[in-house]
Design a protein around this nucleic acid. Structure first.
Lengths: 143, 143
DNA sequence: TATAAAATGACAACGGTTATCATTTTCAGG
DNA sequence: CCTGAAAATGATAACCGTTGTCATTTTATA
């Protein structure tokens, strides 16, 4: 967490940019998040501890975090993007409940292998992937 | 193709809606398409043979086609949505070249099985899924 | 053919995101 | 420490894809 901030500052230094209170505030709240968060949501959470920080700055910081490889933007069907932490433990996929909106992350290494396999057959070199399963979670399917 | 139009008209009748020249024109161009097309692109193609048809009508027709189960909206990371034909041969996935933008469709039944399996472990009932592999196509990776 | 219901097209409005720009802040170098 | 150039900020306007509005036209049923 503190090291995440350090990672960000290292990236900032490397790019000749500047460390600011606002960036640290946004990054801090972002890294404290568990799952996925939209720019708007993050903006409102940040506002609680650091009022005055603009939505624009939140967007800019999220873009910076993404460039630094510390965040990843996702889009689950809707036009609104959400961001998640990009940690060492990457390449997870998502189960999305279409009724309550719950999102569960999972990993399945054997699927990865199969993906590589398929890609090879079509002459592709895979650099990234996205897999989303839509359906009903336990609660919603039994209710 | 003609039967696609027939399908659409059947859906229109069932819903108590009305068959119009505009809808047929949009549907015709849409069904003649090979891969994925955005509303804007479709609008421009339609304009060639049927000038005067508005972008709004194209959007409305695409929505209608989607409701009828004849089209499917997709979003490949970008905010702009694209539409593809939804044929009997559904549940295919996508390989997307991040350099040239080429999109290849593929099917891999064994991946489907695995998806079911994963979902079951998390108590989910899967109704739909999306899998996208991003990378470089043969041309782009060798160039 | 008259009529009610629905579709159209032009345009405004919307939501999420990005650009603009004057002002403030950071951080070298002296 | 200062000073100054480069960059960041926040307010706001603009943007883009998409949807709503509404007066007018078209469809299809009686």
């Amino acid at each position: 967490m503190a090291n995440k901030i350090a990672d960000l500052n290292r990236y900032i230094a490397k790019k000749g940019l500047k460390v600011t209170r606002q960036r640290e505030a946004v990054a801090e709240v972002f890294f404290a998040e568990k799952g996925h968060i939209s720019a708007e949501e993050l903006y409102m959470k940040v506002a609680k501890s650091h009022p005055g920080i603009g939505l624009t700055t939140v967007y800019r910081t999220l873009k910076l975090l993404t460039e630094a490889g510390l965040a990843k933007e996702r889009r689950f069907g809707e036009p609104q993007g959400v961001y998640e932490k990009e940690d060492e433990d990457r390449h997870h996929d998502h189960l999305i409940c279409t009724r309550c909106g719950k999102i569960v992350e999972f990993k399945e290494p054997s699927i990865e292998e199969m993906q590589e396999d398929v890609a090879r057959r079509y002459g592709f070199v895979v650099t990234d992937h996205k897999m989303e399963l839509y359906g009903l979670c336990r609660t919603c399917s039994t209710a």
